[in-house]
Design a binder for these strands. Structure first.
Lengths: 220, 220
DNA sequence: GCTAGTATAGTACAAAAGTTTTATGCCGCT
DNA sequence: AGCGGCATAAAACTTTTGTACTATACTAGC
């Protein structure tokens, strides 16, 4: 660890621990409680209570397990972040599956640590989270970064008119020309004309490629 | 910051600084050089030299600017990571644009800091990077997380046969049936048969929807 | 008032795509 | 030896798409 000079005047970081397993809870407490820069202001083992305690205690950081009774850690994170965006959340779990990790981060988690690794990492994660930074455990770092959307390739999709965009969206939904026409109260011929325009502007030859361009450009 | 007890026996972290602007370079050096846990083993202001120095010095961590002469920081990061995956890279730049950030991380950067913020954050980033963890500056953290691909919706794409997958990929590339046939040395009729199979298994009615499912399932 | 861009719609034709059915050879499993 | 899944292929037929060209009407900008 790299330490800046100690400044004793920083107020202690108020921490809420949300952990289901009593053993783990104890272990966490033991590891963290004698750190003078941390103040554990509350503990609970269930998600629903976690949300309530977060609102009452307004901690700086919450260390959050995922597998919790009543309300899982991801849902709890989501709810807390919604009402208290300034409360930062460190997810601490043994799950390393892609879906869990992505779900946690998308729900508003600031940092993600794996149970069983070095306590220093948890401290680093807590410190990062307090500032609103993101800390990702080495075990999942690459996984997350590999899951980033590739930068949208340049396309002329911005040049489409409003109507053309509507048609394109329905096309991506899988509608046929007559279906699109019905949906938009148009003549099928008009739909064709619009699709003509779309394909011209996007410089493609058929609707499949138009749909591909639309998707790759982030027109979800 | 949260500090674990000092263990004086940890060898100093070997750091390479890659920074274009002499003022900034000096500032960085001043900020970091009296930290006993850091050893600045080299400095350069251009990307090409950075790659060479990385190979020669094998630093633990590189602090890398983006706007560099000869070879920009992103390309340098990519090259270094390719030959030296154990060297970790902290990007330090003033660019906060989405494309730059994503490009840097995708190229293998471990951490991303914004110039002008607290030195402590840079130290945190360096510490995280050394372990292979990811640290993202608060200013860009949300941006990155919002850029995560949504979890792939369940699809039967895994049930496609090898051949069907090939055909599907070419279909997504925008090829027509005759073109696919030519590409795979098949009869157009066979291609149709495969597409039949694809559409059945994916439970869609036409190739556009098949392509959409393919893209959304991450078959890029 | 003219022009450019857009939205609308039509006709007619050509080219793909999709449907249905049938058939053969191969492979692995029982 | 037989069955199921796969890859291959064909014929015949329908539907959908795509192309080409034309035309009207509205709007915004010069």
């Amino acid at each position: 660890m790299l330490e800046p000079p100690l400044s004793s005047e920083v107020p202690a970081l108020r921490l809420l621990i949300v952990e289901d397993d009593p053993m783990m809870q104890l272990g966490l407490e033991q590891s963290l409680e004698d750190n003078p820069q941390l103040q554990i202001v509350g503990q609970t083992g269930d998600g629903y209570t976690a949300v309530e305690m977060a609102q009452q205690l307004q901690p700086d950081v919450i260390v959050m397990d995922i597998g919790l009774p009543r309300l899982d850690g991801i849902a709890a994170t989501q709810q807390i972040k919604q009402s208290l965006p300034h409360v930062h959340i460190v997810v601490l779990t043994s799950h390393t599956s892609e879906t869990e990790v992505i779900a946690a981060l998308s729900s508003g988690a600031d940092a993600y640590c794996i149970k069983g690794t070095n306590v220093d990492r948890l401290l680093a994660a807590i410190a990062a989270a307090r500032e609103g930074a993101t800390y990702l455990d080495p075990q999942i770092a690459r996984q997350v970064i590999d899951h980033l959307k590739p930068p949208a390739p340049p396309s002329n999709i911005g040049q489409l008119s409003q109507r053309e965009l509507e048609v394109l969206k329905l096309m991506v939904e899988g509608m046929s020309n007559p279906e699109i026409a019905a949906q938009l109260y148009l003549s099928p011929n008009t739909v064709k004309t619009h699709i003509r325009g779309i394909m011209n502007k996007l410089a493609v030859d058929d609707r499949v490629q138009a749909a591909v361009v639309a998707l790759r450009s982030g027109l979800v």
